[in-house]
Amino acid sequence: MVFIIVSIPLYIVAFILYAVRGFKGPTVFDSTISIDALCYDVSAFMVILSVYFRSYLLLGAGILLALWAYILDVVIARYYDRFTRIGGDGGD
């Protein structure tokens, strides 16, 4: 339990730093990848907090966030897909 309490500030500071790059990011891609990494780390943080709170019922949120964190990436990629038609019926 001591390890978890010591590690929590590291994660919180990392979240803030990711968010700073997400705010600053010169292009939209910089913001996207940093917010994406933020989502994965929040998922890991939720898992660690579920050990801290001693309840495995809380793990569901971590699963959902890990499943869909990449939807943001796909959304951004799809927006640019309008200008560059890629893909097809099979292969690239």
């Binding site: 891609f29 998922s43 990436d73």
Partner: peptide, 18 residues
């Protein structure tokens, strides 16, 4: 996460490059 994180990076990198 092991599956989706590289995929997301790939998609954004590809979109950025294109």
């Amino acid at each position: 996460i092991l599956i989706t994180a590289p995929t997301g990076s790939h998609a954004v990198a590809r979109a950025a490059y294109r």
